[in-house]
Structure formats: structure tokens, C-alpha cells
């Protein structure tokens, strides 16, 4: 027999659910559905959406290339000070993104610690460019991937890696053929989180990359700008972001994360 659910828990739970969902529903209700198709094909929205998708995807690739090995090192490196490094990795997670943007500017800016050399030796300047958007998004999103992949690696049975070693596999081969396939669901979940975080990134982007339509104005920035000049456009942009996020999460959830 099912017990009655306690009201003390159910009421705040329902309130919490409403708190999360009502704003999203409001967005959908308020959306100017009649003019929406024409707004969507407008140059500004299309440009911002394309830029957002490209930058978030590139940032995710950067995070995968750097973050998966970092997660492996944290989970398998058996190095001293791993705990401290793990704590440091999570700092960008809790850091206000604007502060991250300022920090990036100080290091990679034209007069920054690293930026001045990039400028002098390679003629590369990251701030206020599309590449800068990717850097800012990767900086903010990478901890999500690292934490997720590291958790999966720690939960995985290391004895499979030992079995691979007794069969003559080097650690690199073991990582590729045994470890990585074993934690694939964790990697995919981390990638989705990372991509979603990069797609919504605002603070670090606007600080480090500025707001130049066509090169650095991603969707979140466009939403913020439009809110002052054309509220309807802001709503349309928001709805698009919402739909893209939900679609990606839902699509991947069914195929990967549930397992």
C-alpha cells in the first residue's frame, strides 16, 4: 500500500517546480508567434544564432581535447596534490563569469602576461574577436566537463584497465580502447552540460570579447541588447535559445544519458 505523501514536503516541492517552469511558460506565452517566423529569418537573429552555435561547439571541442585528459590525470594520475588541483579546477565553476572575463583580459589581453607575447611573436590578439568568444566560453564551461568525466572515471572499475595491461596494452592504448568506451556515457553527459553552459555564457564573453555584431555578439548578448531596443526581438531570441537547449538535452538524454 502506498503511504500518503507528507504535505510539508509536497507543497514546497510543487512551489519549486512552479518557480522553475512558470518563467519558461511565460516566455512561450508572451512570444509574438505571428511575427516570429519573420524575426527568425532576420539577419541579426540568424547571425547571432549561427555565431552562438559555432562558438559553443568550438569551445566544447576545446574542452574535450583539454578536459578529458585533465580529468584522466585527476582520476588516474596518482600524483601528489591532486586534491588541490581538483579544487582549483572547480574554481571557474563558482567564479562569477565577469571575474573570469576580467582575468582572461589581464592574461590574454594585448598587454597581458601571455597576450603581449602572443601579439609580439605571432601577431595574435584574442580579445574582442570570435576566437576570444570561444576562449571565454571554454574557460567557463570546461569545469563542467572535467568534473563529469572525472566522476565517471573514478566510478569505473579500474580492474578492466589492469586486465588490458596484462594483455600488453600501453596506458594510451588502454585509455583509448578500454577506459574511454567504458566512461562514454559520462563523457557525453559532460559534453552536453559543457555545450549548454557555453551556449548560455554571457559575463565572461562580454567582458573579454566585447559585443560586436557578427563577430562576438552571441545569442545571450543579443538578447540583452534587444531588451532595451526591441523587447519582442528579445523574446524571440530567448525562445530560440530555450528551444535549442531543450532539444539538445532531450535528444541526447534519450540516446545516451539514461543508460
Amino acid at each position: 500500500m502506498r503511504q500518503r505523501l507528507p504535505v510539508v514536503l509536497v507543497l514546497p516541492a510543487l512551489a519549486g517546480l512552479a518557480f522553475l517552469l512558470v518563467p519558461l511558460i511565460g516566455l512561450l506565452v508572451e512570444a509574438p508567434w505571428t511575427t516570429l517566423p519573420s524575426q527568425l529569418v532576420s539577419a541579426e537573429v540568424g547571425e547571432a544564432l549561427k555565431l552562438s552555435l559555432v562558438c559553443a561547439s568550438l569551445a566544447t571541442v576545446v574542452c574535450l581535447v583539454l578536459g578529458v585528459p585533465l580529468a584522466w590525470l585527476l582520476a588516474r594520475g596518482d600524483l601528489p596534490g591532486t586534491g588541490v588541483v581538483r579544487a582549483l579546477v572547480t574554481v571557474p565553476l563558482v567564479l562569477p563569469p565577469v571575474v573570469g572575463g576580467v582575468a582572461l583580459l589581464l592574461v590574454l589581453g594585448r598587454r597581458g602576461l601571455v597576450g603581449q607575447h602572443l601579439d609580439a611573436w605571432f601577431g595574435v590578439s584574442l580579445p574582442f574577436t570570435t576566437a576570444g568568444v570561444v576562449v571565454a566560453e571554454a574557460f567557463v564551461a570546461m569545469p563542467f566537463l572535467v568534473i563529469s568525466v572525472e566522476g565517471a572515471l573514478r566510478a569505473a572499475d579500474r580492474r578492466y584497465e589492469e586486465a588490458a595491461a596484462t594483455l600488453g596494452a600501453s596506458r594510451w592504448l588502454t585509455f583509448r580502447r578500454v577506459t574511454l568506451p567504458g566512461v562514454l556515457p559520462g563523457v557525453v553527459a559532460g559534453t552536453v552540460l559543457c555545450w549548454a553552459r557555453a551556449l548560455g555564457e554571457f559575463g565572461a564573453t562580454i567582458t573579454f570579447a566585447g559585443n560586436f555584431p557578427g563577430t562576438t555578439t552571441t545569442m545571450p548578448l543579443a538578447v540583452y541588447l534587444a531588451l532595451e531596443t526591441d523587447p519582442d526581438a528579445a523574446i524571440v531570441l530567448s525562445v530560440v535559445l530555450l528551444l535549442v537547449s531543450v532539444a539538445v538535452l532531450a535528444g541526447l538524454r534519450d540516446r545516451w544519458i539514461r543508460a
Binding site: 572499475d157 580492474r159 578492466y160 589492469e162 586486465a163 588490458a164 595491461a165 596484462t166 594483455l167 600488453g168 596494452a169 600501453s170 580502447r177 578500454v178 568506451p181 567504458g182
Partner: peptide, 28 residues
């Protein structure tokens, strides 16, 4: 371990779940 001429049958076998039986045996 990877450089010793040793073969191990583990207690719960530890077959690689994502590979076929043939790929498991060909892995070494």
C-alpha cells in the same frame, strides 16, 4: 604488467563489454 609475458584469467573474467568476443581475444 604490459611488458611481462603473462596471461591472466581474472576472477570475474573482466571481459571488455563494448567489444565482441573476437575483439576481446584479439586485443592481446
Amino acid at each position: 604488467a604490459e611488458r611481462r609475458p603473462v596471461g591472466v584469467v581474472f576472477q570475474d573474467y573482466l571481459l571488455f563489454a563494448h567489444m565482441s568476443v573476437l575483439d576481446n581475444v584479439a586485443f592481446g
